[in-house]
Design a protein around this nucleic acid. Structure first.
Lengths: 123, 123
DNA sequence: TTTCGTTATTTCTTATAAAATATAACGGTT
DNA sequence: AACCGTTATATTTTATAAGAAATAACGAAA
């Protein structure tokens, strides 16, 4: 069992072990919480533009995220269409849904890890 | 068991689950890999200035890291002295050593977590 | 009192990232 | 052909972070 370090830290202050998680390909990360939320909002709105606006993200950045996602996937996760009756739109594939589900379960496990480590700080 | 997602990702590319970890106090992080290495180099050199140079970090940034560390600790982790025969110097307390050891064990556990998750990607 | 290399602090400059802006292309409908 | 709202892309501007540089303070020793 690791030694607790709470006695070293300032009293009356709340300390937490926290972190971030992502999937990377050859060193550069391409899938994390941001892209997941973007995919979810594309489901709702049917448009990269609308999804980006909801997240207060520039269209450009949203487009880049999607672009990288598609690049790293065996099959596209977002189908984009420009032009047409309503100007176009985007929709996600079943692979995207699987990615979302995977990420949810991954985050659950990570959350547990962090909570466990935060407890260890004190005891 | 979570569904694997490898079949979704691009072939012939190596994917990894990776992340970063830190301790935070009321929302702002103050202790991670950087500060640990800095402490270690202060042990070796006896000087914030030398330690910063080894890490190709500005003295200012190093000083700020140490400052925040001391601020969040019940007792200082680095004792700094300016002036004197050789201009001064810094040395770390036993609390700092405990912090270093804690962080090492924490990173070990995190590494294991990440490796486990990376395996899960494929199977 | 001068010297030394460090700590301590401010200011200025540079580099990087993010955001905003502008413009073109698209294609179904009217 | 004109219109629409989207995708697609380049350019410019802004904001933020990082870095460099400059200067003062420190105090033991010679």
């Amino acid at each position: 069992m690791a030694k607790p370090i709470k006695h070293i830290l300032r009293k009356k202050a709340i300390f937490k072990v926290n972190g971030s998680l992502w999937i990377e390909c050859e060193g550069n990360r391409f899938f994390g919480p941001g892209p997941v939320e973007l995919l979810e909002r594309i489901i709702d709105t049917g448009s990269i533009n609308q999804a980006a606006k909801q997240m207060k993200m520039s269209y450009k950045k949203a487009w880049e995220i999607i672009h990288v996602l598609n690049e790293h996937s065996a099959h596209p996760v977002v189908i984009m269409q420009s032009g047409g009756q309503r100007g176009g739109g985007s929709l996600i594939t079943k692979e995207a849904i699987q990615l979302i589900n995977y990420h949810r379960s991954l985050r659950k496990r990570f959350k547990k890890f962090l909570e466990n480590e935060t407890e260890k700080l004190s005891f």
